[in-house]
Structures are given as structure tokens and as C-alpha cells.
């Protein structure tokens, strides 16, 4: 069977186009953006979700193995920083086969779309999940404006 080179290239192009199509399909199926946002590329430790509740922000951070003593939460000029360390040593007398739990030391900072009241920051930890409530300053809170008829 005689074929011209251009035919071969054509086939090749078609194969590539098909592969590209499959790749796109995969992307759509498996990493569909969560709720129209896909910021998981910026994923670090700890994994966090940030919610705007109107009058406050709620930050949910996953900090497995850390108790309230191990986590440091600092707020400085509207920037919230979570930092800490977790035990890095293997238990006494044990040899290590596998280590997947990372990292041993972390620090992560967050800034917010509007100003928060530094006096009213509350943080609590439960089941390895840290929840930080950050109340917005009065001016940044949503307000209902009464409409009057003339």
C-alpha cells in the first residue's frame, strides 16, 4: 500500500487531536471546579476553606495531629498567619517503613477582602480541624437601607 507522507502526518495530527480531546474530557470529569471556583492549585498545608458569612469570615483549616498548643494563630495588619510544627520523630524504638504525612513544619498567611476586627478573632480546634472566626469591622458589614416613600 502506497501512502504519501502528508497522509501519515494527517493521521498523526488526528491522533493528537483525539488525545487532546480525551485529555479535556478527563479534566472536565475529574477536576471539575468546586462551586465555580477552582483554587485547589494553590493547595498547601494546611488545606483550608474560607467562607464569607456576611458579618464574618470563617476559616476552616485541616490540621491533623495538632492540639491547641501546637498551632499558633497570629493576626498582624489584617493578615492572619497559621503556623506550627508537628512531631517529626518516629516513635521511640520503631523503624520507619513509610512516611507520607507531611509536612513537619508549616506557616501559611491569609489576607481578607475587607477589614476584620482584630479584637474579635476566635479560634478553636476539634478533631484535627481548626476553625477561625473573624468578625468584619462595622463599616464592612452588610447593612439594610430602609426605603421610604415620599
Amino acid at each position: 500500500m502506497l501512502r504519501r507522507w502528508s497522509d501519515v502526518w494527517n493521521d498523526f495530527d488526528q491522533t493528537l487531536a483525539w488525545m487532546e480531546g480525551v485529555r479535556r474530557q478527563m479534566d472536565r470529569t475529574f477536576s471539575g471546579p468546586a462551586l465555580g471556583l477552582d483554587l485547589r492549585a494553590s493547595r498547601g498545608f494546611p488545606c483550608t476553606n474560607l467562607v464569607d458569612e456576611g458579618n464574618e469570615y470563617i476559616l476552616r483549616a485541616e490540621v491533623p495531629g495538632l492540639s491547641e498548643k501546637d498551632i499558633k494563630v497570629t493576626v498582624h495588619q489584617d493578615v492572619l498567619t497559621l503556623s506550627g510544627a508537628r512531631e517529626s520523630e518516629a516513635p521511640e524504638g520503631y523503624t520507619t517503613h513509610r512516611r507520607e504525612r507531611q509536612p513537619l513544619r508549616f506557616s501559611r498567611s491569609f489576607s481578607f477582602p475587607s477589614r476584620v476586627d482584630l479584637e474579635k478573632v476566635k479560634a478553636s480546634v476539634k478533631n484535627g480541624v481548626l476553625t477561625v472566626h473573624l468578625a468584619k469591622v462595622e463599616e464592612a458589614q452588610p447593612r439594610q437601607i430602609a426605603v421610604t416613600t415620599e
Binding site: A34, L35, R40, C47, T48, N49, L50, D52, E53, Y57
Partner: peptide, 14 residues
């Protein structure tokens, strides 16, 4: 399990 409210500004876990 945890609440996933609508107004999420950053979402890294589900």
C-alpha cells in the same frame, strides 16, 4: 462531613 456554604472564597477541601 462538614457544611459547604455558598459563599466560599477559597475551597481546598470537600
Amino acid at each position: 462531613t462538614f457544611e459547604m456554604p455558598k459563599g466560599l472564597l477559597n475551597c481546598e477541601t470537600e
